[in-house]
């Protein structure tokens, strides 16, 4: 097994339990990927999101090392009109 710290931000928190403050500590099988984390939380595959693993932008197929830090947040671009 490996452990990962997963942080979920903004609108994507709707998929977490209500008492959760956005930080999850997950135990996952060796070889687990970003896609496995998203599935465990219940974030739909068509939800627009950005994922960073250990501070690098990561695709769904990226495998996680033990102790990986995963951040998931929606793209935001507003500010003007």
């Amino acid at each position: 097994m490996i452990e990962a710290e997963v942080r979920v931000y903004a609108t994507l928190r709707q998929y977490l339990d209500q008492h959760d403050r956005g930080v999850l500590h997950m135990e996952l099988a060796e070889g687990s990927t970003v896609a496995d984390v998203l599935q465990r939380i219940g974030i739909p595959s068509d939800e627009v999101k950005q994922v960073f693993v250990d501070n690098r932008r990561a695709g769904l197929d990226v495998q996680l090392d033990d102790g990986a830090r995963v951040s998931i947040f929606p793209p935001i671009a507003g500010g003007l009109g």
């Binding site: 931000y9 903004a10 929606p74 935001i76 507003g78």
Partner: peptide, 10 residues
């Protein structure tokens, strides 16, 4: 760079 949406920003 700065961007906002709802109650979130970067």
């Amino acid at each position: 760079h700065g961007a906002i949406a709802g109650m979130m920003g970067q």
